[in-house]
Design a protein around this nucleic acid. Sequence first.
RNA 1: GGACCCUUAGCUCAGUUGGUUAGAGCGUUUCCUUGACAUGGAAAAGGUCACUGGUUCGAGUCCAGUAGGGUCCACCA
Length: 910
Amino acid sequence: MAEISKSYEPRDVEKKWYAAWQAAHAFAGKVAPGKEPYSIVIPPPNVTGVLTMGHVLNNTLQDILVRRARLEGKSALWIPGTDHAGIATQTVVERELRKQKQTRHDFGRERFLERVWEWRHEKGGIILEQLRRLGASCDWDRTQFTMDPHYSKAVLSVFVDLFGQGHIYRGKRMVNWCPVSLTALSDEEVIMKPVNGTMYHVRYERADAPGQFIEVKTTRPETIPGDVAIAVHPNDPRYAGWVGKKVRRPIGPSAEIPIIADTAVDLEFGTGALKITPAHDKADFEVGQRHNLPIIDVLNANGTLNELAGPGLAGLERFAGRKKAGELLKERGALVAEEPYANNVGYSERADVPIEPRLTWQWWLRYPRIEEAKTAVRDGHIKFHPERWSKVYLHWLENIQDWCISRQLWWGHRIPVWYRKGVDRDRLTEADLRDSTKVHVSLEGPSDPENWVQEDDVLDTWASSWLWPFATMGWPDTAAMEQAAINYFYPTTTLVTGPDIIFFWVARMIMAGLEFMRPGEPLERRIPFKNVYFTGIIRDAQGRKMSKSLGNSPDPLVLIDKYGADGLRFGIISIAPQGQDIRFQEDRIEGGKNFCNKLWNACRFRQISGEAGDNSSLNAILTRLEPAKFDADDHAILDRMLSTTREVNRCFTEFEFSAAVQALYAFFWNDFCDWYVEVSKSKLQSADTKRNCLAIQDLVLRQTLLLLHPFIPFITEELWHQLGYGPEGHFIEEARLENASQVATTAHGRGLTLDRAAVASVERLKSFVSQARALKAEHNLASRRDVKLLVTATDADWAVLEPNLTKLVRMAGAAEITRRDRVDGAPAMVTPLGTVYLDLASAVDVGAEKQRLQKELEQLAKHIAGTEARLANKAFADKAPAAVIDGAKKQLAEQHAKRTELERLLNALG
RNA sequence: GGACCCUUAGCUCAGUUGGUUAGAGCGUUUCCUUGACAUGGAAAAGGUCACUGGUUCGAGUCCAGUAGGGUCCACCA
């Protein structure tokens, strides 16, 4: 073995192993007969994306799952890829063009798309490279892109299929229009934001009775030119007699508009009268439909006011128009009042500007398989972790609306619909849509393309990503599916994602899987995944969401440079409890790095402690153990190793990854390094105990490396080889992680049975040492190693202490530990293994020592009172389980004994 | 307006079916460069588990309510 360096330097190690893994195609997902499959599809990051802390968390978790699966002997597959991200990507490329004072229209559709593809080939792989730095063990040979030819085929054939089934239709409806991106958005892409605006109180004069006014409140006076009615509630006594009369529009082209009655009006709100502007409000649109009102659209697609807004307003940008409308109203005496007003406004998630409700022709999808999608989750075929998200999911499905799947973009899957030349696509009825002489819908397009014009719109990006779990496995092409082993790997085992895309993505994938996969087969064969793990959202130290605009998101690559990928992984997982948001603290990442260094040095200590034995397999190490020479520490560390193995296993079944990390941290740092390695220093001095001690270290380190590997893959791979656990040319993941009972059984076969009582005795020995150290520190002797310690102990306690004295002397930092029948006047501590004294009677500050003992007695008295009260309670004795009562009795006895001893010490001081 | 979540040490958070004296990391104080590690070791200080009631022999844990914080959903102009 080459000597291990003094501190862990991640950079070279990470580079070396990632290259080796990749060269060996170590992460290739393969069909392995007899092996259980374990598959994950990555939530595809936007092709424009760069790695964020959210990606780090999300992908580290996925990597942990697949690496653990490999160690458990499963055949794991993690499919990577990226999403073409329609609006986001088109925006990025358009922004570049704008720098050269060009727009996409200067290029035309075809040449613009060439530009986007160029961009994607140049920069679209960045995030995947970054995932490699993180250690992601994806099967890179299977990298997917939602615009790959085979993937596009899946997307389009789904459109054709759903259209054929009547699930897809074209309709003129109110949509969320983004005046910047110039496209429709789905409801899910609109986020509500509180906005401080102005409420205008506007009066409309009666046309038949000048001087009489009806007053309404509005936040959007610029839409008044689009008003076609005033609505009141039919039961509103204030306006009885007004219904059917007409009022004058105060601004815009002059017109008389009717007062109508509609129950949609809220009697309580404002004046009880509502202006109806069907072109610019969803609710108004519905009122307009009910009353057969005209629709006056006063806005252009880009959000400027058009000529229908009338002179003074036409041509203005919408917010300038709002201000101007207010002024015009004032000039005309129609503005009764204006007041500051806070309300919620829908914003385009991508462009971050208020959306406009706008009436346009769009393609809509009636979701398939809604009921089955509910059943799949409600009946536990798909398990959500944490479970509570299933309520959010079900609630959304209860209230689901048709999905607007068309986007007025160029970058995306162009809708496979062709209109016969000469046909006015905006006058097509539902029946016309299904008339193949007017509309052609197919994957291949019409055979006489010269007679047809293709739809301009592309599909919503999510209308491609909802197919991800199976379109990444070759669907719908039979040969490709065969090659991708979809039969083996589908349904995928676990999906790891954020709860923020539960509607965008998770729910839709479930419906898609149910609809398209394995028709006719049982539900559990069609679902896209069996588990969904929802991560928390990473926030900054102040609890704010991380975002580009706030600039509060640390660059993961900087963190990797600083702390190593393993350090970053360990740190982020340790602060990510299940289901809660995560407050990012860099010191925890530093803690991850420190842990790696600790691991490194423990292995280094092992290496310089003695020649390696045969470490080539679990059996080989077990053969080297000498059960006859086991002391309490040997039993205890192996027992703790097994209980930690069990605990980590439990954590994986419960998706409690931070708990697993904490268990491993505590075991390795506290039990192994702080105690076992330290007591080893005594054991290694003696030829008699050395070989067994080294074998135990080898066993513990091996198991620890295996347990830690999914979390910190690089350093564990390196140490695995440094300590000779695996042959050259093989990787740690080719080894099997045995579970606790397998290890115990194998060890038993080698003549080793662990003594559980040893664990308890070691706890008492630790306490003895710790109190002896405290005693020294109390008397400012912490750094002295020549102090003699005296002990008074029962024979039983001494029987525990005596065989461990050499170690205890070293651990306590004493010159010697000697048993006495009685010690008077020396400072002392009462431990679970007798009372330990400093042999410095003359140097004692009697007053201070008495005070200390007094304080300890007072605290003990409180505890004794508590225990006694409990035991004295008849109801407790009657109803509590025997084990609890026995425990309390035993505790009381110990407390009494301790009190007696403390009192004796106190008396001895005079 | 509806749903869900959170409130535990100075800070950030664990706390798994209710059961000995409520834990961790960081920070703080004191001591230690002892031959794995100062990215380290030892010891210590620090908490009426938001509040009020209830259930129970027993509540940080279960129930109800109150206060504060957060997230999601919802067409109140």
